[in-house]
């Protein structure tokens, strides 16, 4: 399986995302923000960082980059996409996921190892996890507070589209403790914490994050 990892000007975590993809057993394919094709990849990771300096709003300018037009088109055909941190912000700005991510309630940038609870194991990126399972992965963001209107929140909860919730203290004031959500078909997932930084106990707080990357391999195998 070939998984594309997008690099925008200002991306920071594309290398770790590519490493996680390789560790999971897939081929990591670098994709450039100005590219007009996805090089035939089977899935895409939109990684964290500060794309285009996060000028205007976090993820706003990246959401209309040439590569994102291709990603949006491929999502319509069922391609799995994972957005991490800035990638989650980009997917929301691109309209692939509902809601938005705004400044942390406490105004502080939060950088810590965060416990999460898996709320849905029926997405392309969480099928190797178990509902109720707890993960420990780094969180590092200043604009990580998930917001959506009441009807959207109700729909997300009712349809099982809340994928991850923060455990312990809510780090940023996210509504309903939401750390990650999915599209209606479960193929697109966005989350603020960084599973790609937690794939190896040598360099992260756990190896819990690797399961997201192995999940998409299994999801692809079950489709094929």
């Amino acid at each position: 399986m070939r998984i594309g990892v997008v690099t925008f000007p200002g991306s920071l975590d594309d290398r770790d995302a590519a490493r996680a993809v390789r560790r999971a057993g897939a081929e990591a394919v670098p994709l450039w923000h100005a590219d007009h094709d996805l090089a035939g990849v089977d899935a895409v990771v939109v990684p964290g960082g500060f794309s285009y300096g996060d000028y205007l709003r976090a993820g706003a300018i990246a959401s209309i980059a040439p590569i994102m037009r291709e990603v949006v088109d491929s999502v319509a055909r069922g391609m799995p996409v994972l957005g991490i941190c800035n990638g989650f912000q980009i997917l929301c700005e691109a309209g692939l996921l509902p809601g938005a991510l705004v400044r942390n309630a406490g105004l502080h940038f939060v950088c810590r190892d965060q416990r999460l609870r898996v709320e849905s194991a029926s997405t392309a990126w969480t099928c190797d996890l178990t509902e109720g399972e707890e993960l420990l992965v780094p969180l590092k963001s200043g604009e990580g507070r998930y917001v959506a209107d009441a009807a959207t929140l109700e729909r997300l909860a009712g349809d099982g589209r809340i994928v991850f919730r923060y455990l312990d203290q809510n780090p940023n004031g996210a509504q309903a403790d939401i750390a990650g959500i999915s599209s209606a078909d479960g193929r697109v997932v966005g989350l603020m914490p960084h599973p790609e930084h937690a794939i190896d106990p040598l360099t992260g707080p756990s190896a819990d994050g690797l399961a997201l990357f192995t999940s998409v391999l299994r999801a692809a195998a079950s489709v094929a």
């Binding site: 309630a105 105004l107 917001v147």
Partner: peptide
Amino acid sequence: MPKPEILDPQGQAV
């Protein structure tokens, strides 16, 4: 402007 229902911590700091 942030919508009225959106918490505005920057405004609160001001």
